[in-house]
Design a protein around this nucleic acid. Structure first.
Lengths: 134, 134
DNA sequence: TTCTGTGCAAATCTTTTGCATGGCA
DNA sequence: TGCCATGCAAAAGATTTGCACAGAA
């Protein structure tokens, strides 16, 4: 509980019971969706509003205190082809196919055998790196 | 155009101009979102409905003709920590942290230097592999 | 006391569904 | 001809916004 409070103290966000509850839930579960957070917090905190969860998740993300695990991004589609990895630009959303490197492939196969794997690398593409920062 | 038609012929789906247009758009762009598909097709095909795009994208996905690139999945959040990869179960949605393997890490760094990387491995977790197929 | 955060309600956006009509096989 | 696909409109779901009040600093 101490650590969570200090996360907020070191940011531009005020300490509120709602924010502490959200962080506590994330600490407990490791990963949680908006709904999961809402349902759990509502039990001890019946008056909390979904809008508050959304607003706080967005503030906490902007401050870098929390991260979004499945990058929220419009889903895109492609005609199915042989397995390959994807490079997805976090700024412009462009998707590039990249061949599934043998080294990576074997390495993951060792760790997660018999499992359909899909590899995504999120980054900033060459173009966006040139034109503007962050 | 010939190949696209045969994709449908070999499936349980009927050949319609709308479906061919969607596949053609995906072939041209490589990857496209629902909106992008809709906007482009509407130009030559003003009467097409967004619902038709959605329905067809879902049918084409079920037939395995197309794939979803950013797996549509409720976004989840976590307290920010040192870089690590995520294993995400495609069935139950559970997220597991996995350490960023040195081999993988270096390998990607060589290919995509100076780029904030996030690695996701989508698969079926041990639990779901046990309980039921597919 | 000041200013940010909360909670409600409404607005907006995204996706799905029902149904009558149209078109492929 | 039979049945699946389309297009419209409405429904359902997800997320954002505006505003008045409450609470943190």
């Amino acid at each position: 509980m101490k650590n969570l409070k200090s996360l907020l103290e070191e940011s531009n966000l005020k300490i509120t019971p709602q924010r502490l509850a959200i962080l506590k839930e994330l600490e407990n579960k490791g990963h949680a969706s908006i709904e999961e957070i809402y349902e759990t917090i509502k039990e001890m905190f019946p008056s909390i509003s979904l809008a508050t969860i959304y607003k706080n998740i967005n503030s906490l993300k902007e401050e870098g205190i929390i991260s979004e695990v499945c990058l929220h991004q419009k889903p895109k589609f492609e005609i199915s082809k042989i397995p390959h990895a994807h490079f997805i630009c976090k700024k412009c959303g462009k998707v590039e196919d990249i061949p599934l490197n043998e080294v990576i492939n074997k390495n993951i196969e060792e760790k997660y055998p018999n499992s359909h794997k899909e590899l995504y690398i999120y980054g900033i593409c060459k173009n966006c790196q040139k034109n503007g920062n962050s």
